[in-house]
Structures are given as structure tokens and as C-alpha cells.
Amino acid sequence: MPMGDLRDAGGVSTETHTSAAELRAFLHGLPGVDRVGAAERADRLAGRSVKAAAKAEAIDLAISMVDLTTLEGADTAGKVRALCAKAARPDPSDASVPRVAAVCVYPDLAGVAVRALAGTGVAVASVATAFPSGRAPLEARLADTRAAVAAGATEIDMVIDRGAFLAGDYLKVFEDIAAVRDACGPAHLKVILETGELATLDNVRRASWLAMRAGADFIKTSTGKIPVAATLPVTLVMLEAVRDYRAATGRQVGVKPAGGIKTTKDAIRYLVLVNETAGPDWLSPARFRLGASSVLNDLLMQRRKLTTGVYSGPDYFTVD
């Protein structure tokens, strides 16, 4: 892997002199991903048994990593406020449940979420850049981003131009991300690769490096709007990418699988994957997030099973 070149280029978010040819040579110079091997490794790690005290710890950690998300056309301010209340106090009957990491909404509702979450310590994330397709003029996408930041969002989830990426126009994707990075100002930038549309794990690795070099604070798997969302092998490849990127540059980028994470078991599998791939440095809400909504109820149900000793049911938790 040509990591030496990168270090020489001082390749972090301030990279400015990137040529199309250099970028292309770099991304295509990344080693290929062994698809079968990645699936096998993810499968093997998924079989790890996490029980009792370790499970209790994993559940609390997973809750604190959730980006509680509502991204529906039918979202209302009331629904967002309800979700914010849940984010700050996931289980009203148990104050020892940690709050979630962030609430993720559309930009027009970011202001509502910011007001509802003031003083709770829960961050407000907003999708932007013509989510979920990203098919809008750059100016519109930047305006979208600025509006979300102006409304108070401290985390921006942007989508990359998958069309340009698949067509091989890496520089365009790079410059888009860099431009959105600038528009974010102090806000954290999560770059959604939409891995379900990238076709191969090689592409996932390239897109991860591309996003990190362009200044992403987080790389995120999916929008949740297409059938193929986060999978363990894809997340494995992304975790390897952030690990290698830190080894090359010293900068630590976070990872956020999103979509399709529905059960506690799923969530714990991701935590095991993080620990075994990127390492314990990533086991914190600052470096790893779970983009989901329904998984929170399952985590709370399992948590209550551990504290009360009896199985709980969906009747006792909010319907989101």
C-alpha cells in the first residue's frame, strides 16, 4: 500500500493539491479486498459469545453509540421532539440507561431537534447534500449543508456522488466532499458511501480512503434508503480502512454502519468487529456510531431482561 506517499503529502483534511491522476493511481493502488475472506472473517467474529456482565456493558455502550434516526417524508416537528425525548432518556423508568449519541434528522427539522435537545448532551446530526440520492447541483448541496449547520446541527451526514465515483471521476467526488467539509465549518462531517450501490468491496475500500483523504470525520455505510444497507463485511473493510489510515497519517476517522441493524445481537456483532479490527480506540461514541432507530428498543428490552430477570415485550417501550 502506498502509505509512504500519503505521509509525504501530509494527506489529511487540508489536502489541496490533489490531481485526478494522482488520486486515481492512489485509489487503484490500494490492495484488493478478498471478498470471501472478508465474509468469512465477519462471520467468524459474529459467532463470538458475549454474555452476562460483558453483555450488559456492550448493551450500554451500544445505546450510547446510537444515532437515533428518523428520515421519513412524513416526519413532523412533534415526531422529532418525541424522538429527542427518547434520545435523552431512552428508558423513562430507568435513569441508569445512558443517553444516545445523537439524533439524526432532515435539515429542515434540525432546528426543532436542537431546541428539544438543548442541555441534554445529545448531539444533533442532520443529513444534507440532497440526501439520499445526492443528485443536485453542488451549490444546492452546499446550501443544504449550510442551512443545517446554521440551524444548529453539529454533525452533518453527506452523501457522495455515487454516479461520479462509479464512472471513475474520483476528483469530482473528492472536491465535493472537500467543499462540503468547508461548508460544515465546525460541524463534524460524516460521509455516506452508500456501499449498497458501490458493487464491490474494492470500491468500498477506495471510497473509504477517498472520503478520509477529502476530510471526513466519519465514514458511514448507507443511507438506509436502498435495500442493501450496512453489512458486517462492508463494515469490516471500512474499519480496516480507518485503522490503516490512522497508521499512515495519525488522524483517527470514525465509522458508522447504518440501516438494517435491528437487534441487540446485530449491535453486539458490530462492537466485536470494531474491537477486533480497528481496536478498542474506536469503541467510543466519538469514533463509532450505529445509525438505527428500531435497534434501540431491542437494546432496552434486553437491558431490562438483564436487570429484572424476566423477558420484556414491545408493549413497554415507545412506538417510533
Partner: peptide, 9 residues
Amino acid sequence: PWLASHMDV
């Protein structure tokens, strides 16, 4: 006992 205590039964 698990069935009897299950909150969703």
C-alpha cells in the same frame, strides 16, 4: 417460569 414471567405473554 420463563413463560409465566414473560412480559409479552
